[in-house]
Amino acid sequence: MMPKTAIVEICGKYKVHTEHYLNTAANKTIILVNGSLATTASFAQTVRYLQPRFNVVLYDQPYAGQSKQHNLHGEPIRKEDEAAILLELIEHFCAHHVLSFSWGGAATLLALAQQPRRIEKAVIGSFAARVNAPMRDYLERGLNHLQACDRLNVSRLINSTIGKHLPSLFKRFNDRHVSSLAEHEYRQMHFHVNEVLTQNTHCYVACANAIEIPLLFVNGEWDEYTSVEDARIFADHAPQASFYTIRNTGHFLDMEHPAALHDTRQALLGFLDPACRKQGRVASDIQVNYV
């Protein structure tokens, strides 16, 4: 099904490209939050298994994808700005759930800490409570490539680190996407990476303390960058946190192989739509541990 697209003005400052996949049989709406350098296209597989049960909303950040032509690109956008954009879109689309991927989790946690009244549940994919040694090495190596707008080495770095478990087709997609980015997108990502490296990530733990809705953290077993162990630090801070590990999978979860797609789908739907479990539509061998 083709989405309904629109440009939504946020706070009179940003214009955001949105894609709304409508489902007349659904009574809940879920909004998806991209990771760094990504656009709505990165959620293509995720939409396929969410849309049969939910209305699904995707969007591009003001500096990226189909939003960038509608915005000026002077000062970089902070994670607090991205959180404010998310909160506005939650209200605009009357969203009930949020699903974030990778560093999209930073803005999502900041937004959820403000306790938006509509949100009932959230899934935080491939995100952790601290910048560990492998992630720090990856980000520090990326700073120089981003500052130099070195498209080739940015792509090589992504595909050899967080993307190393991706199939070759997706690695080629990464190459093509990174080579098409504008210079302001590299400046934005340089700002973002520098912010992550220089600021105390305790703010994300503090956000978790303020979030009262159920959260599901989903991480790949082989992901050394946002590891299962580092995600579970949130267990001591988020009152209703649960955790799921996708076996034999790295950072990109449902993109990496068919079994990972199956397990991610089952974990998300089992958490977001309990009727799936009651009706036996979530496989019995997939267990989500609620702690």
Rank of each mutant, 00 (worst) to 15 (best):
residue 164 K to T: 05
residue 132 N to P: 01
residue 182 A to Y: 12
residue 76 P to K: 00
residue 110 L to S: 10
residue 119 I to V: 15
residue 125 G to W: 03
residue 122 A to P: 03
residue 139 L to D: 03
residue 162 I to L: 13
residue 86 L to M: 08
residue 154 V to Y: 08
residue 137 D to V: 13
residue 158 I to S: 07
residue 103 W to R: 11
residue 151 R to Y: 04
residue 148 A to S: 12
residue 79 K to C: 11
residue 106 A to I: 14
residue 147 Q to S: 11
residue 111 A to M: 02
residue 120 E to Y: 13
residue 83 A to S: 12
residue 182 A to Q: 13
residue 99 L to Y: 01
residue 96 H to S: 14
residue 112 L to G: 00
residue 138 Y to H: 12
residue 171 K to D: 06
residue 157 L to S: 06
residue 182 A to D: 15
residue 114 Q to Y: 09
residue 76 P to A: 00
residue 93 F to Y: 14
residue 110 L to K: 15
residue 78 R to C: 14
residue 127 F to L: 15
residue 139 L to V: 04
residue 116 P to E: 14
residue 86 L to A: 09
residue 98 V to I: 15
residue 114 Q to R: 15
residue 154 V to D: 07
residue 132 N to W: 05
residue 124 I to Q: 01
residue 87 L to A: 14
residue 172 R to M: 10
residue 95 A to D: 01
residue 92 H to P: 02
residue 118 R to S: 15
residue 129 A to W: 08
residue 156 R to S: 10
residue 170 F to K: 09
residue 113 A to V: 04
residue 108 T to G: 03
residue 126 S to T: 12
residue 142 G to T: 10
residue 74 G to K: 11
residue 93 F to A: 05
residue 158 I to Q: 08
residue 104 G to M: 04
residue 158 I to M: 12
residue 79 K to P: 05
residue 139 L to G: 02
residue 165 H to W: 03
residue 137 D to Y: 10
residue 137 D to L: 13
residue 93 F to S: 07
residue 181 L to T: 02
residue 142 G to W: 08
residue 74 G to W: 07
residue 80 E to F: 00
residue 142 G to K: 13
residue 106 A to E: 09
residue 127 F to V: 13
residue 110 L to D: 11
residue 169 L to P: 00
residue 79 K to H: 11
residue 85 I to A: 06
residue 111 A to Y: 01
residue 127 F to Y: 14
residue 138 Y to N: 10
residue 176 R to T: 06
residue 110 L to H: 10
residue 166 L to D: 00
residue 156 R to P: 00
residue 167 P to W: 01
residue 89 L to Y: 00
residue 163 G to M: 09
residue 157 L to I: 05
residue 95 A to Q: 03
residue 94 C to S: 15
residue 170 F to H: 09
residue 131 V to L: 14
residue 152 L to W: 09
residue 147 Q to W: 08
residue 103 W to S: 12
residue 93 F to D: 08
